[in-house]
Structure formats: C-alpha cells, structure tokens
C-alpha cells in the first residue's frame, strides 16, 4: 500500500506500524519527531500506531533557523 511520506508517495507493506517504518528508514538513534495525518505521534506510541493506505506521515528534524 502507499502512504505519503514527507510529501512523497512511499510504498510500505500492509499492516506496518510506525515503529517498523522508522526502522526501515534507518532513523533509529536519530533525533526526530513524527506526525500522522497532522497529529503528533509521541515516540512511546510508535509501536501501536498502525499505518493505513493514504496516511500522511511527516518526519521532522531540527535545522538551522532564526
């Protein structure tokens, strides 16, 4: 199935949870935060957050800014 990951189409296996996606993207150990469909998902809930087709996932990080 397809989700929208940081604005771009991204194919994932059915019934994937957010924790699996983070592992697949090789982001474990990095500092980031995640929204699904414009709602913050705290790290503690990654494993219970099951993705469905069409979900809009945003993964954000800190960058330089004023």
């Amino acid at each position: 199935m397809n989700i929208l990951l940081n604005g771009a189409p991204h194919e994932i296996a059915d019934d994937l949870c957010l924790a699996d996606l983070i592992a697949q993207l090789d982001l474990i150990g990095q500092r980031f935060a995640v929204e699904v469909n414009a709602e913050l998902v705290p790290r503690s809930r990654f494993a219970e957050c099951h993705l469905i087709s069409g979900d809009r996932v945003e993964i954000i990080q800190a960058v330089g800014g004023g």
């Binding site: 940081n6 993207l25 500092r31 980031f32 993964i59 990080q61 960058v63």
Partner: peptide, 20 residues
Amino acid sequence: VTIAVRRTNIGQNNDEPNIL
C-alpha cells in the same frame, strides 16, 4: 539559540551533522 523544524531528508545525508 533558535532552530527551525523541517522535514528530514529521507535516505539522504544521514552522515551530515545535525544542528543539535
């Protein structure tokens, strides 16, 4: 110090240092 929050570059520049 101020920072901004932006999308991560998925699959790119994983070795680039982060501002933090």
